[in-house]
């Protein structure tokens, strides 16, 4: 059985101007010890996907279809009470800038212990001991449980947040831009740490980012999102070496290729779609150089182009022949 299977997930926001189909027919899976990257431009539905899995959606957001199977059990159908339990025990999220959410007047150890007591119902003394262990786990000396947040650097605070995410032995950790505001060296430290923890505890890891450049070296699998849909998914090699979707191709060219020529990146023409008025047919067609009549009319299905490599594009054969 897979650790996580998301099938045809749809999460919509109802706001006064209409319905935002933030996640629309999204499917992916994740095994123990595996790392999945979700990438795409701002507003394409990455965070909403994560919040759906962790059942942390704000009240205007609803899962309107699909299944979220965690070890076979459908989280989309759980009661609020069951969710409360699962939220902390099975799936943890670590957000961008989360470190700024630490309480400035409370000792680091107490804040971690609070999370432990809340979810493990252990005694305060045991919780403090566990807090020190968790700090060591994220490579901060245990005796620093008595420090306050301002005595820590940004990277250390983000590691404290990871320690808190680990407090309830989750099966899956989701990092939503966990390193985006951090320096490259600190980012590398944090990614190393997450990698180590993932292997050590055989956890599933989902890395959400708009920085395609860090995904290849961090993730086994990558899903590329556009306007609430996964337009391509596959192994890191599939995505980078056997790129199947015109959007992915453009996205890759948004990053400088340090191994290649010093050429200005290309960028993507036009703007991401207004999520209240997603264009008919393939949502990417207005910005796509390969678009034809059919693309304006019908939404392409995801086709398994090679083993495990899915592409949702009418023109995928043209794309392939070009390589």
């Amino acid at each position: 059985m897979k650790l996580l299977e998301v099938k045809n997930l749809r999460t919509y926001f109802t706001i006064s101007q209409g319905t935002v189909k933030a996640v629309d027919d999204v499917s992916f899976d994740l095994d123990h010890g595996e790392a999945l990257g979700i990438v795409g431009e701002s507003g394409c539905g990455k965070t909403t996907s994560a919040l759906s899995i962790a059942k942390l959606l704000p009240k205007e957001g609803k899962i309107v279809g699909g299944e979220i199977l965690l070890e076979g059990k459908d989280l989309a159908k759980l009661s609020d009470e069951e969710i409360q339990k699962h939220r902390w025990n099975d799936v943890s999220i670590c957000f961008q800038g989360a470190m700024n959410a630490l309480n400035p007047v409370m000792k680091i150890g107490e804040q971690i212990a609070e999370a432990i007591v809340l979810h493990h119902k252990s005694s305060e003394k045991d919780a403090m001991k566990k807090a020190a262990e968790l700090l060591e786990l994220v490579e901060i000396p245990g005796e620093r449980i008595n420090n306050y947040p301002h005595e820590f650097s940004g990277g250390m605070k983000q590691r404290v947040m990871i320690a808190m995410a680990l407090a309830c032995d989750p099966k899956i950790i989701i990092g939503d831009e966990p390193t985006t505001a951090l320096d490259v060296m600190v980012q590398a430290q944090i990614l190393n740490l997450l990698e180590r923890l993932r292997t050590e505890f055989d956890m599933g890891f989902i890395l959400i980012t708009h920085d395609l450049s860090i995904l290849a070296e961090t993730c086994d699998k990558i899903a590329v999102m556009y306007a609430g849909r996964i337009v391509e998914k596959g192994s890191s090699e599939d995505i980078f070496q056997r790129t199947g979707h015109p959007y992915t191709k453009k996205l890759i060219k948004c990053f400088p290729d340090i191994k290649g020529n010093k050429r200005m990146m290309e960028g993507i023409p036009g703007a991401p779609p207004n999520m209240l008025e997603i264009p008919p047919g393939c949502p990417f067609h207005p910005r796509c150089e390969y678009a034809e009549e059919v693309c304006r009319r019908s939404m392409p299905d995801a086709i398994e182009r090679d083993r495990g490599h899915f592409v949702a594009c009418h023109r995928w054969e043209v794309m392939r022949s070009e390589r």
């Binding site: 060296m185 290849a216 890759i252």
Partner: peptide
């Protein structure tokens, strides 16, 4: 050393300071 190289899978952990 730690500069991500898009599309290239690394061997072992990043060499951090």
């Amino acid at each position: 050393d730690i500069m991500p190289k898009p599309g290239i899978k690394k061997e072992g952990p990043r060499k951090v300071l």
